[in-house]
Design a protein around this nucleic acid. Sequence first.
DNA 1: ATGAACAGTTCTTATCATGAACCATAGAGG
DNA 2: CCTCTATGGTTCATGATAAGAACTGTTCAT
Lengths: 142, 142
Amino acid sequence: MTEIDTTGTRELAKALVGLSHHVLHMFNDIGRGHDLTAQQTELVCAVIVRDRVRMSDLGKVMHLEKSNLSGLVDRTEKRGLIMRRRDPEDRRVTYVELTEEGRQVATSTHCEVTRRLNDLVAQLPAEVQLSLTEVVEKITES
Amino acid sequence: MTEIDTTGTRELAKALVGLSHHVLHMFNDIGRGHDLTAQQTELVCAVIVRDRVRMSDLGKVMHLEKSNLSGLVDRTEKRGLIMRRRDPEDRRVTYVELTEEGRQVATSTHCEVTRRLNDLVAQLPAEVQLSLTEVVEKITES
DNA sequence: ATGAACAGTTCTTATCATGAACCATAGAGG
DNA sequence: CCTCTATGGTTCATGATAAGAACTGTTCAT
């Protein structure tokens, strides 16, 4: 690995870490308007784009331990935004669904999230925009 | 905004959020080997690529409130990895520096971080790789 | 039936997040 | 030389998050 390579790698690392903070911090900003924490905000967004989700899948999406997720769902349920529903087919699994209020909040926040991400990538050249999703998915799926 | 646009935006949002989790979770994985939390790991990495840093700059880089950063620096200092040093020119500011042990840990973890990020982007076509840093920086700097 | 695997919960401990109040220092202007 | 204001950090209190271990129920294959 040459000097130039190292430097480039270091800059890429800085950039990617900065971007990641930027993206996840959005949930903070956006949630604040609804008096939600970042995690609660991401939770309702994750649910609304999937309609209803298993706890275990939520854990994977949000990178949370199951014990941790239990607490988050507790707090968000107490806030009246979501509810748990047992799967009658397999009574071990529980689905998370939005309440009516939860749906409203989630619609608003998720809309804001996608709007901001859109604004972010809007600065990029058109052909890069088109391939960006694919590129990012490819990066992540490993 | 058309239907197709909306769908594309939604997928992009999922992808970017997934990538961000992936990137920041790295600090978790890598830190675990050294019995460090994700934040402590990112802290020492942030210091080693900048040699010494003001508290206030660290807060910006890591998206932390100053009170929060104070605690993190406390804990990491207690672990023996960093130390604070007052700026004699302006006695309000304090710089964070690595101890000898901190430098070793930071070198190892930072190397691992860049290696993993490199592996991530290695899957991408060459011309995308070349422009990626620039693209990501442009996305973030707004 | 029995036992292994799975999905969630609960508990404990340390860490992190946030805002408000606070302290010390620096840099004006009068 | 004094205020006044701004700045950089710390401290404190409270709630939220992280991680692991032990536990409850449920399913499924012997």
